[in-house]
Structure formats: C-alpha cells, structure tokens
Nucleic acid binder design. Structure first.
Lengths: 138, 138
DNA sequence: GTACATTTGTGCGTATGTATG
DNA sequence: TCATACATACGCACAAATGTA
C-alpha cells in the first residue's frame, strides 16, 4: 500500500494509517523508533508538514512519543495498577488540563481519570497507569 | 498579558495559554466563537502556523471544536449519562482508535472508557458522555 | 570538553482545495 | 456569485536538543 496524492483522504492521514498498521503488525514493535521525518519525506515523496501531521496524529492517539533531537518511538503497552472504586463513588474520563499535564508529566494522548468519592472528594489519576475495579461480592 | 516572541516558551503555547485563560474566565463562554485565524494572526502579530497550532492544542484538550469554513467554538460542558459499574467489572481510559473515532463520531480530545465485565466482555463508551458509578450499599 | 551530524521544533511564505454563509 | 474561513501541502530557514566521535 502506498500514498496517493490525488486521493480524497489527505496525505497525512494516509501516512498515519500506514504507520499505524505497521505498528499494529509488529513491523514497529513497542520501544522501536519510527523512521525520521526526513526519511519518511523521501521514502514517500511527500512534504515534511504532511509527515509531521501524521506523527502528531499518532501522538494524540497515544501510540508514539516524540523527543526533540532524538525521534519518535512506539509506546509500550502501559502497566496499570488497580484501584478500587468505592461504594458511592463515580468516575469520568477527560483530557488533562495543561497544568495537570505538567504536574503529572503526562504524554500527549493520555487522558485522566477523575474519581469522585461518596463525600464529594475528587482525585485525578493518569489514564495510562490505572485500572478502576469493582470487586466481586463475596 | 501579551505574547513575547523572544520568550523561551513557544509562541503557540503562549497563545494557547492566553486563549485558555480567556475561555476559563468567561471571556469566551461555551458555544461562543474564537476569533478567526486571520484575526488572531493580525491581533498578536504572529504567524498563521502558530495560531493554528495553538487552536489545535486546545482541540486536543477538548476545549474547542473547529468547523471548516465556520471557525472554532468553545465546547459546552457535556451532559453525562450515568452507567453502573457492576460487581467484578473494571474500567480503563484511553484515546480511541481511528476506527472508533469514526464510528462513534468522537471529537478530537475525547477519550473513551473501556468497561470489562465479570465475564470478560468489553464495552466502549464515549468519554465525554458517560459517568461510571458504583451505588451506595443499602 | 569540543565539535559535529542527526533529528525535531518553530516560523514564514505561498498555493490550492473545500465548506460555510 | 462571492467573500470568508479553515484544511492541506509544499518549500525554505534557523533554533534547539540529542548522541557520538
């Protein structure tokens, strides 16, 4: 599968689809580096902006991380610690505020989980590190 | 507060901070339109790319929606329907896959909630429309 | 410690396409 | 029809971070 500049779907979406597939197929396993922007630009005969937009898309999907001067790497499947949702509690998912992003050191494309307990207290957790559970009755 | 091109923080981050503050302060209430790209470009004397990146940032944070040919608008605080997390169930938050984005018609910056029940079945919900609850014991 | 190549970040200019009103 | 506005895409340039020789 290649990229068709005359297609109705944008070039950067086509490239993102292509890279996403190569990640899923194991062509780019977790931890591995994606080709550099310059490499992808040449490889597919497209502009750098299209390349950057496609990688940005993958970042916001939580699939890759990018480090300036280093490159983009496929994220590892996160380990999640289990947290019990107590009786009378509730939980919502949302994107972090910019302040939360900084203080919790969250990557792009990582939501937060907001837990409200029975007394109105609120706690916020990184969405890629926790799994909320409700135990079986016993 | 204005924008300083000589600052170490990127222009587009400065503008995003500024717009975010104006949204939070009620200067741009939910449903209202942000100034157009051209307007912001002139207003702050910065390039179009910086303007676009700042708005893109606000989109991925779930703060605004952008409609081509129309502009960017502040999102309304979502109504959430309550769903009970059953005994033996668990829940994680993550960003949707591209396929999920399409089929569930999710905006940018909207996570999904993945609910696993006691029997291993999985259900996925839009993160901006649901609130998971565990009822009080009675 | 220094120098260098590589890689991503930021920014500008330009052009064309497409949706809205 | 027309103006406005956002989307995509290319080119170029320089800055800043990284890793290595």
């Amino acid at each position: 599968m290649t990229i068709d500049p005359r297609s109705h779907t944008p070039v950067y979406v086509q490239l993102a689809d292509l890279l996403r597939q190569r990640i899923k197929s194991g062509d780019f396993p977790p931890g591995s580096a994606l080709p550099s922007e310059a490499r992808l630009t040449q490889e597919y005969g497209i502009g750098r902006e299209a390349v950057r937009m496609s990688i940005s898309l993958l970042r916001t999907e939580g699939l890759v991380n990018t480090v300036r001067g280093h490159g983009s790497h496929v994220r590892d499947a996160p380990e999640r610690r289990q947290i019990e949702l107590l009786a009378g509690g509730s939980v919502i998912a949302r994107m972090p505020t910019s302040a939360e992003r900084r203080t919790m050191q969250l990557n792009e494309g990582v939501p937060v989980i907001e837990v409200h307990d029975a007394h109105g207290a609120v706690e916020v957790f990184p969405g890629d590190e926790v799994e909320l559970t409700r135990p079986e009755q016993d």
